[in-house]
Design a protein around this nucleic acid. Structure first.
Lengths: 123, 123
DNA sequence: ATAACATATGAACAGATATTCATATGTTTT
DNA sequence: AAAACATATGAATATCTGTTCATATGTTAT
C-alpha cells in the first residue's frame, strides 16, 4: 500500500496517514485562519499580568483610570497603554465624565473568560 | 481640604482621590499578584494562532501529532514546541500508543474558554 | 486666557516569543 | 542489532511586547 508524500513534512512519507478520515472530516469544520487569528489576538489581550489585574479591578464596577492605577499599582502611562490594548480587543469600553474617563468591562464574555481562567488555575 | 501624596504617580497629588472607598473595598477582594500571574500565563498559552488552531483541532477528539500537523499545516518541530507550551499550561494532555502520542483537551475549562472567545469575536 | 488636572500617545529600549534547523530520544519493525 | 518511524529538544535568530520617559490632548477651574 502506497503512501502519499506529505508536503508539510518532507522527511516523513507516512505523515498524515494515521487517521486520514478523521483529518478530512475535521478539516472541513476547522476554524479559518482568520478566526484563529482573531481568537489568538483576543487571548493575547488577556495574556499580560497588568491587563489581567486591570480587568479584575473592573469586575467590581466601572472605574476611572486614576483609581485603576491605585489598585494595580503601576504608572499612569503603563495603565493607559494597557487600557488601549484592552479597548482595541473589545474587552473594555469607557465613557467620559468631566476630566475623568470611566472604564468598564465590555460584556459578559469577558467576565466568563476571566472566571473560567481563574477556575482553571485553581486545580 | 488636603490630599495625600500618591507614591504611584508622584506628579499628581490628587491621584486616587476620586473613589477612595471603592478602591479600599476592592483592594481587599483583588486577586493576588500570584493569581494574576498564573491567569495571564494561562491566557498567554492561548495567545498564539498556531496553538489556537491546535486546540480547535483537538476539540474534535484526541489526535496524534502527525494528524495535528496535517490539520494545522506547520512543521513537526513547531507543532511539538507549541504542544509543549499547551501541556505546561495544563491545556492538553497526552497518552502514548506505540510510536504515536495522542493529545487531547485537558478539561472543560479549555473548551469553554475557546467557545467564549470565538463567540466574542463574532460580534 | 491661563493654569491645573486627567488621560493618551510616540519613541526607545530591554526582555520575551515563535519559528527554523539540526539533532536527540523513545518505539517498533526487520 | 540496525533501520525506520514518531516525536521532543536545544540553540539561534528575527520579531514582537511592555515599560519608561517625555510630551501632547482634552477638560475644568480660576
Amino acid at each position: 500500500m502506497e503512501n502519499e508524500k506529505c508536503l508539510e513534512c518532507p522527511h516523513h512519507i507516512e505523515c498524515g496517514g494515521k487517521n486520514i478520515e478523521l483529518v478530512k472530516r475535521l478539516a472541513e469544520k476547522m476554524i479559518t485562519e482568520e478566526e484563529a487569528y482573531y481568537v489568538s489576538e483576543l487571548f493575547k489581550a488577556l495574556s499580560d499580568m497588568t491587563r489581567v489585574r486591570i480587568l479584575f479591578s473592573l469586575l467590581g464596577g466601572e472605574m476611572c483610570v486614576c483609581d485603576i492605577q491605585e489598585l494595580v499599582g503601576v504608572t499612569q502611562s503603563a495603565i493607559s497603554h494597557q487600557l488601549r490594548t484592552l479597548k482595541q480587543a473589545g474587552l473594555v469600553r469607557y465613557r467620559r465624565e468631566g476630566k475623568s474617563l470611566y472604564y468598564s468591562i465590555a460584556d459578559d464574555h469577558v467576565s466568563t473568560m476571566l472566571a473560567t481562567g481563574l477556575e482553571h488555575i485553581s486545580e
